[in-house]
Design a protein around this nucleic acid. Structure first.
Lengths: 200, 200
DNA sequence: TTGTTTAGTGAACAACTGTTCACTAAACAA
DNA sequence: TTGTTTAGTGAACAGTTGTTCACTAAACAA
């Protein structure tokens, strides 16, 4: 017999909002309040299912914490009946942004971009760039390098004179290393927060 | 008499490591175990001080969560001994990019960008855009709108003729609605994966 | 009709929660 | 010496925790 769908969507959405507000997964009692369930037994049941589906998991001391799938999100790229509904999404593609951008957490660092030297690559001031330290840089990669004792993001280039760093902005000149290039890592991703005019 | 320094550094460091491992602030009893304190009263005392100093704070249901200063670190964007150390370099959002980009999970959806109509805003084909559905759009915001039964990302503009949609690319013409604009949400963030030539 | 599954309630369990109180040990200043 | 502050222990408090059990209500298939 196939497992029934067991509609966790509504309580899960409520819990996700709760977690975004409080950074805490509450107790069974409080979850019952949040979901408007009277008996604690039923709340417990729903939590068990969320644990089974990896939306939640149990930390030390029986405390609940978000599981691997907790931060997954639906992606809308087609329109259904002229209306994009995230709850019943066309594609069942879900992704967690962290997992999408970061493959090896221990070898990854974030770097906040300063200046407009990479503007033509769509990298703006204030953007955060995801850097993988251990990846070996290839010509054409965007790399984080040490120039004049400061970290800078540039494209790794090569010509007859050897390897050098190039900005993605014609206003900047190429940087040729005195000895060797000190490359700290390779860019593998980027994210930015864009602020709408008014905070809701 | 000035308040003594009250050395919280050691237990705080231990707690930070614990939190990095488990994403949870544990109970007083477990904290006592972590700090190797016998009586729960003294553990309680230390927690009170951490609350007072904004390293911890109390969430709903008396549950502890990290406070504003919990993720504090030393100087970030300078280079230490000519080497970028991820431990001291990454800011507090080492935690979670999801949390950085998404405020209200249930009202947020992701949208994959097609085309180059927003290229001047640093939004490329293949980028994922974070959309908040319930935020009321203001002129100047980047919005997800329904045009010819397809979702498209444009800037909301206004002139004497009323509101219309504008691309961030001079090659595209403005879109004037036949009746009303069908705006699905407002862009609040963006992320992209840039593929270095070889998958490591 | 009957049977089965899902949804939901309410009471009861020991174990654990945060907190308070009374107490001791060391450090240090007057 | 005496007094005060900080560090730390141990017992006791009522309230809350997660869990289990027994039970009812609705939906739906045979």
């Amino acid at each position: 017999m196939p497992r029934s769908p067991a509609n966790l969507d509504v309580p899960l959405a409520a819990l996700r909002d709760y977690f975004a507000r409080h950074q805490i997964i509450p107790s069974i009692t409080e979850l019952g309040r949040l979901w408007q369930i009277s008996g604690r037994a039923w709340t417990h049941q729903l939590v068990q299912r969320m644990k089974h589906d990896a939306f939640l998991e149990e930390g030390p001391g029986r405390r609940l914490r978000p599981g691997p799938r907790f931060f997954e999100r639906g992606v809308a790229d087609t329109v259904r009946a002229g209306y994009a509904d995230p709850a019943h999404d066309a594609t069942d593609l879900t992704l967690s942004i962290d997992r999408y951008l970061i493959d090896k957490p221990s070898e990854t660092l974030l770097f906040e971009v300063r200046g407009d030297s990479m503007i033509d690559a769509g990298i703006h001031e204030g953007d955060f760039v995801v850097i993988e330290r251990t990846r070996t840089p290839t010509v054409g990669d965007t790399v984080l390098a040490l120039v004049d004792n400061a970290l800078t993001l540039k494209v790794l280039a090569e010509d007859a004179g050897g390897r050098f760093l190039q900005a993605a902005n014609p206003a900047y000149e190429a940087i040729r290393p005195t000895f060797a290039l000190e490359i700290q890592g390779v860019m593998v991703g980027l994210f930015r927060r864009t602020k709408p005019t008014a905070k809701s």
